[in-house]
Design a protein around this nucleic acid. Sequence first.
DNA 1: CTTGGAATGTCAACAAGGCTGACGTAAACT
DNA 2: AGTTTACGTCAGCCTTGTTGACATTCCAAG
Lengths: 170, 170
Amino acid sequence: MSDSRAAQVYGGESLLFLTDEQLRQGIEAMFFAYRGFTADPDRILADMSYGRAHHRAIHFINRAPGTTVNNLLAILGVTKQSLNRVLRTLIADSLVESRVGKLDKRERHLHLTEAGRALEAQLSDAQRARMRAAYKEAGPEAVAGFKQVLEAMMDADMRRAYVKLRDGTP
Amino acid sequence: MSDSRAAQVYGGESLLFLTDEQLRQGIEAMFFAYRGFTADPDRILADMSYGRAHHRAIHFINRAPGTTVNNLLAILGVTKQSLNRVLRTLIADSLVESRVGKLDKRERHLHLTEAGRALEAQLSDAQRARMRAAYKEAGPEAVAGFKQVLEAMMDADMRRAYVKLRDGTP
DNA sequence: CTTGGAATGTCAACAAGGCTGACGTAAACT
DNA sequence: AGTTTACGTCAGCCTTGTTGACATTCCAAG
């Protein structure tokens, strides 16, 4: 099981890309690339007293303004207590606004303030710059493959959330 | 800067894949996919009292048996205090062995024990299974693109480390 | 209408795993 | 002999995850 060669030919197509060696390369690529992926925003956030969790919250509030805490919870995949701590500081610092729901007063609808949008843009710009350079270096076909593999790697729930965000939320 | 259309044509090739929207998709794909990427080993480790940090150490010790602490530090990108805490528990639990260097007695060479290799295989199998499914679903060309983009996303240092591991350490 | 349960969000306390800083020891280098 | 390198460790801090307890609000069954 641990050293499946997978060097057979199946349906006329070589399966050499499924060797353990190829898979290991992908695993290590994910590890190193994710570090790069988060490095630039992390540097910016380190100066303020924020962390990656704040970035994630800001990102998704910006993506879906008015989203509820529960909604955000599902997307971020953390406990509400964990998210709450982050939100509390963001609200205290006037980057995020929490509005009591009109229909259901239990819900809180989250919005970025002007300052919040400014920080979001700063973080986003930094992360996109690296992404853009990588895309440019690899080319459009590589990018298509990149997205396909990542999507196939997600848990089913997350995949639904991703696709929903990607295709707009009708 | 924040909403560059990038919809021009450059060198005869469309640059539509470099729009902010495309970049944002890639960013979110990385976020969700990384969660899936770590989910299976995390579940296994949760039962023991280990975490992701232990997994990383075990992975790279297995990849480069006899590596030194300093070496591992550079690859993992953490402080020695942080790594040491992890290594201490792994050594105490007889999953890792630390041997004093023969040429340079200041160095400690790290090896997995039999038990260490068993755990590594268990974690590795779980992670590879997901990777294999994703590769299979996306196909060989997508996988090639996936790796290209990830490699281009890494910091230069990490890219060197990655390539060195990938091509064997001569 | 009331009451009990479900949903939503907040507060408190704890653990993992990053970090810095300081220090000690042994070996290697100059 | 003195300096540098490799490693280990102690102490303390921060972020970010966790569980447990609790308040508020909604809704539906009696």
